[in-house]
Amino acid sequence: LPAAAAFGASVGAERIRTLLELRRPAGEVDVPEPAPGVVVRTFVPGQDDAAWLRVNAEAFATHPEQGAWTQQDLAERMAEPWFDPAGFFLAERDGELLAFHWTKIAEPHTGEVYVVGVSPRAQGLGLGRLMTAVGLEHLNRSGVREITLFVDGENRTAVSLYRSLGFDDHHADAQWRTR
């Protein structure tokens, strides 16, 4: 908000991070064809944990929270009442995990793009769009009315992808640091 920016400037603070909440109504989405050899399936707890943690760390190597997840972090999320492996999608080629989309339905009528990640080794295969669309299709079939997500405002690639899939700005939070 302008008042927050003015206050930050008055105390010598700088904005270091912006977290955007984007939303879209549920509805049809075009799911692209996977790249040759890429297969999409759902997550199997216990079987896919290590591979997912590895790709999550690769995809979010510079993210202050997401890239540092441990087995305990994953286990805690899987113990949540909203966890549903049927809404946790993996993209593989030749048995190697390349990308994922974990969806979440924690509130009635609202689905969430919880986390989408693509291994840097698989960049350029269109997996971000594919996996996001697969998850949106799942959320649509689940009967939600609205879909939300949170994304770092500085992640221009992700923000552009989400906006191209019909997401609009809903809310923004800023993190500030004094110099």
Rank of each mutant, 00 (worst) to 15 (best):
V144E: 13
A68H: 13
D152E: 15
A5L: 11
V38P: 05
P120E: 06
T110N: 10
W102M: 08
P85E: 14
N140E: 15
L165Q: 07
T110Y: 09
D48A: 00
L74I: 02
D94T: 05
F100R: 06
W82F: 02
G87I: 00
P81S: 01
P85N: 13
R156D: 09
P32G: 11
R17C: 03
Q66A: 10
L125C: 08
E14N: 06
R93A: 14
L20T: 04
A61L: 05
A91Y: 05
S142I: 07
L130H: 12
E154W: 12
T18E: 14
A79L: 00
V151E: 02
R141G: 10
R145G: 10
G95V: 04
Q66R: 12
F7R: 15
E112F: 15
I105R: 13
P25E: 15
I147Q: 12
T157K: 15
D48H: 10
H63K: 04
L19D: 09
G46T: 10
H170V: 07
A35W: 04
E92N: 04
A5D: 15
L22W: 01
E21I: 04
A4T: 07
S160K: 11
A57L: 03
D73W: 10
V113Q: 07
D169L: 09
L22A: 06
F89H: 11
R93W: 07
A86G: 14
G153F: 05
H63D: 07
E96Q: 13
R23E: 15
Y162V: 04
G12W: 02
A158C: 07
N56C: 03
P45V: 06
P25M: 06
G67A: 08
G128M: 06
R145V: 00
F83K: 03
R77T: 01
V44P: 04
S164Y: 01
A5G: 06
Q175E: 13
A172G: 03
D48Y: 01
G153A: 06
W82A: 08
R15N: 01
I16M: 12
A51G: 10
Y162E: 00
E33G: 03
G126L: 02
H170Y: 14
A68W: 05
R17K: 14
A6K: 13
R54A: 15
V44F: 07
H171L: 11
L161N: 08
P2N: 14
L161E: 11
P25F: 11
W82R: 08
D30P: 02
A6Q: 14
T110G: 04
H171R: 15
L165P: 08
L125Q: 13
R15M: 12
W102P: 10
G126Q: 11
V134E: 11
L19Y: 02
G12L: 00
H101R: 05
A122K: 13
M131P: 01
S142T: 05
V40Y: 05
A9S: 15
A75R: 06
V159K: 13
A59E: 09
L98H: 09
E96N: 01
A9W: 12
N56Q: 14
R23P: 00
I16C: 10
E107K: 14
P85R: 14
G126A: 08
E92P: 04
Q175L: 12
V118Q: 01
D94W: 01
E154S: 14
P108L: 09
